[in-house]
Design a protein around this nucleic acid. Sequence first.
DNA 1: CGGCGATTTGACGTCGTTCAACGTACGTGG
DNA 2: CCACGTACGTTGAACGACGTCAAATCGCCG
Lengths: 262, 262
Amino acid sequence: MTFSVAATAESIAAVPVSIPAPAVVSGSSAATEKGRCAGCSVRSKGLCAALPAEELPELSAASRTINLLSSTPVVLEGAEADSVFTVVSGMLKLYKTLPDGRQQITGFATAGDVIGLAVGEAYAYTAETVTASTVCRAPRSALHRLMERRPAVQARLLAMTSVELSAAQDQILLLGCKTAVERVASFLLALSRRSRPLPDGCPSVFLPMPKVDIGAYLGLRPETLSRVLRKLEDAGAITRLTNDRIRLDDAAALEATATLAA
Amino acid sequence: MTFSVAATAESIAAVPVSIPAPAVVSGSSAATEKGRCAGCSVRSKGLCAALPAEELPELSAASRTINLLSSTPVVLEGAEADSVFTVVSGMLKLYKTLPDGRQQITGFATAGDVIGLAVGEAYAYTAETVTASTVCRAPRSALHRLMERRPAVQARLLAMTSVELSAAQDQILLLGCKTAVERVASFLLALSRRSRPLPDGCPSVFLPMPKVDIGAYLGLRPETLSRVLRKLEDAGAITRLTNDRIRLDDAAALEATATLAA
DNA sequence: CGGCGATTTGACGTCGTTCAACGTACGTGG
DNA sequence: CCACGTACGTTGAACGACGTCAAATCGCCG
């Protein structure tokens, strides 16, 4: 599911880089053929979860692991969609752009999420790292062959796409109906469901992306987001521990203001 | 794709009914077993397009055709998702509801569209007819069995879901970034691409749903929609032929104001 | 310590909403 | 055939939430 902050992402330190960063590629030549996929940290997630062990050698041969610094584009909206990527670690933002430059972030991708699936020939969105990340690249044709050979892979892809669709419809509800406070509360709660609570039992969320990106995801300006967070903090619902971590002191109050779907 | 007004829908007259209407069911007993699906008007659309002829008898046996008046619910958000439906004719609206009653329409379904696919046990949205409609109901279990037997059906479902996901992301862009005029222009253009131009060559769109529903789809109040339509009409971009039909006199001007995605 | 970008805060403007009244289309019954 | 009722649509005026613009502050590295 293209959204929450996975535990693995939390240990990755953001490496600020303004210029498209050099990519470090470790392909099949960099590790033992069988071992690379077999020992992968996302072996049990995403599409790979549907793969039987005997497919691993061929998959290892077809795929390449790529290490990326932050702010590095991985796929570009409109470009030819010849590859698919699985996020191994880190976090990416997926966004669409209007001709005049306005951007709407459609989701954040973390470990196990698949990026770059396209209906036609072109990618439907741009994907760019927000923290240093590792992704695994495979040619689209290899995925197609794999799906023909293994219906379970196709079934898995269908399940993942369906979950994404459902999440997208929730986002449509959020953007079409909810107020700024409701959007932020919904966002914090959705994130908190995917992360481990603090030692003191309070849920908390990790926000490695800049505030302007959170705003672009929620259909709000960063100024509005800042004001809403302050309001929630004054109300005692949250505490801003650091710039990129928020503790949810009163999750019940947040749920009340989130007006969650029926 | 859950969206545009199909040609078949245009010939269906809306039958205003405020009370949930009686449903007329014509099942396998009402027609010859083989003929019913074989002669269906959506045989070449939606999921059925992926079916080889030899599957038709079993499908006919498992499915039932249902005729519905307007304003009749077909599936309810949160209810147990035990059936899937294919729209044969007419138009339905799909929407989500917040606890306080606010509604967001996530799409309109027309001939060939599939309704009621669910990730978990419950429907994710409510579907309700906006015009008199005919739908074809099949048990979810039958679809699952069919997909196991026929990978092509699963592939088709994956393709349809992917297209829906892409449309949902376009809608997220619309709701998150665009102004009222841009939303309406985008909406009219998207509809016009799916319908036949008038004899005079001008594209036109058919809007059988109430204005409040169009608003709920675009994240706008009916008053705002009305004002925007008036503005577009005054600008010479459109003409309101009747209450439910609009002619697009200047599609180029509309595209300029729609700020279509890159 | 200094500098730069990200974030926050304040003042103000604007777009879309809200509330209310009016108009219109259609169906019903006199 | 026309009066009436109801639901939908339109229009106007005032309001409010969020956006815009600008400045101050924070945080992170060098």
